[in-house]
Design a protein around this nucleic acid. Structure first.
Lengths: 347, 347
DNA sequence: TTGTACGCGTTATCAG
DNA sequence: CTGATAACGCGTACAA
């Protein structure tokens, strides 16, 4: 009576005088089962408080209905939005998410990938750590044909899909916008160019300068982790330049660095955008709170996560073919705000 | 040769002419196994590219080394920090996180709880959705003695631990601070009092008023979702009051509402803190970007998540007893910033 | 449409 | 210290 055993399909079978196989079928909407017995099975399952045992099921069927999510950090606005989008998509299709963060450390990324592999995730969603050089640690997935979808910080790979935005174009356009506002000495706060997103933003920025016959100076390209501190440091760097050598605009590869740079420069008495205009990237909440509001690039985290997960799931269900879709590019529109409206304010 | 079968402990056993049981033991650091055979087993596992099958293991051992995390929303600074803390703790102890969000919807919370239960998580970390009335949907966990740890938005329960801060005290202190700055007409932007955090913040606020012989007016207590829109709406509400009936301070139960209220009031020409002082809650990044910086309460998301997960894991490992620790309260210090320094600025 | 019988890979139990 | 064997709960050929 007080047996602590779980309710299994055998209990249901015994209760109904049918075989366990029938119960198993009835529970899984197997078409070749009569309406009436299915109904009885479902009712009994309810009655007995049956809970399917996912391990036993996974062990037998070799699939887990679980997706692995591997990200550099969980606690950024962009990433938590992306994960929220993934969770939504996964939930809709009966998948679960198992999540780990690499904290920008390849070694941890490797360990986490191994764990995910071990846990037999049906597919992997990954955004690479900043210092990841090769994706050799994903080989086990490729070998076993476990689909991998890269998002945000992606890597070219024939048998995987990459979901992101056109970073080059966005950076090009926002730089062009600064130029159209009359800026000619535009600085760039960039991230580690090992990651495509930062490399492409740098490329877009530089090409825009070239196309408008502006000099591309190494001194105006700072590389950092784009943290709050990095933003403050960049401000210090600018303030230490002779006044006539200072940039008249800054394009930062993320909003955090842009905002903290702005704060420090404002503290030092510089006017934004009159003395120095600003543009960021991500459309982080802080970009709408800083005064003046930061011009930035809308980075659609939630829909990006949703798209990546949905694509992966469709592939798992055989609806789409991952290998035919090497890249999905989402729109990333400019969000023009006061921090870059130099001319307008001067008129 | 091209067999797609996985490498199992039987393959290792056969290779070494030992039994599968021995291999199983060797792989799990079972003490009663000789050093030499363990070494051979480990080497062979490596050689053959063995990967343990977690389902088979879970099926047999009835534990998953997986923790369920159920939150209202993934994409808030506080929540993603808390989850980052949990992930860190879990990872350290060989546990994995499976995460779902209720999107502030009880029904989804129920479904998610059922899924977690089904997936046989070893323990559950949960922060309740805003409209959750009872925790009956957690009964299956309680009945099966699966430990549940509430965090942030908690619920009193004899057999569970709750991890949070002293919201009453924090609210009391920050209100007292506003009073000490000379504010006498203090408004409160609160959340749904179904959730302890908002009820306690309201209580703390009201008690502080009473203790300083200030009136507690219903008109100065607005309840909302504390969204950006709610903040803007609150500003409208204030501006619509006759000038002499307006509050001279606002204490918001979160930073988002506070900040968007500030932005709208500043737009309308009010000076902060001279005309109206502000205090928030959470120490969200936006509180450090808004001008003037928002006085707020440090809500230690990461350490809270870390603490909750560690406590749960210790319990699972038998190191601590969940039932002896009904509550863990973390420090939540005030962060005094310019938005509330009324007197100082007037001097 | 349903039942039979077996195996998925591991771990627990008991015996040696 | 090690081996043999029986579960764990479910899915699925194959047979009926």
């Amino acid at each position: 009576m007080s047996a602590d055993r779980e309710v299994t399909i055998y209990d249901i079978a015994k209760y109904l005088n049918v075989s366990a196989a029938t119960v198993s079928r009835g529970l899984k909407n197997n078409p070749m089962i009569s309406k009436s017995t299915r109904r009885k099975i479902e009712d009994t399952a309810q009655l007995l408080g049956y809970q399917s045992n996912t391990f036993a099921s996974s062990l037998r069927s070799r699939q887990t209905n679980t997706l692995g999510v591997l990200v550099p950090r969980l606690n950024s606005h962009f990433m938590s939005s992306a994960i929220a989008g993934m969770e939504d998509a996964a939930n809709r299709h009966g998948y679960n998410l198992i999540i780990a963060q690499s904290l920008e450390d390849v070694e941890k990324e490797k360990r986490n990938a191994a764990t995910m592999f071990n846990k037999r995730v049906d597919g992997l969603l990954i955004s690479l750590s900043s210092n990841t050089q090769t994706i050799r640690h994903l080989e086990p997935f490729f070998k076993k044909k476990i689909p991998v979808v890269f998002f945000d910080r992606i890597h070219q790979h024939d048998e995987s899909t990459a979901v992101g935005i056109n970073n080059y174009e966005a950076a090009y356009n926002i730089t062009k916008h600064l130029i159209s506002q009359g800026c000619t000495k535009i600085m760039h706060l960039g991230g580690n160019v090992l990651r495509n997103v930062y490399q492409e933003r740098l490329n877009g920025y530089q090409q825009a300068l070239r196309d408008h016959h502006l000099p591309v100076k190494e001194k105006w390209h700072l590389t950092s982790h784009l943290s709050e501190q990095a933003g403050t440091d960049a401000a210090r760097y600018i303030l230490d330049l002779p006044v006539n050598k200072r940039p008249d605009a800054v394009f930062s590869a993320n909003d955090t660095a842009a905002v903290y740079c702005m704060l420090a420069l404002k503290d030092a008495g510089l006017r934004i955008p009159e003395d120095i205009a600003f543009a960021g990237f991500n459309n982080d909440p802080i970009s709408r709170v800083i005064a003046p509001n930061l011009t930035t690039v809308e980075y659609p985290g939630e829909s990006l996560g949703h798209t990546a997960a949905t694509h992966l799931i469709n592939h798992l269900k055989g609806i789409s073919n991952l290998y035919n879709t090497n890249a999905i590019t989402l729109r990333a529109d400019l969000v023009i705000r006061d921090s870059s409206l130099k001319n307008k304010l001067q008129e």
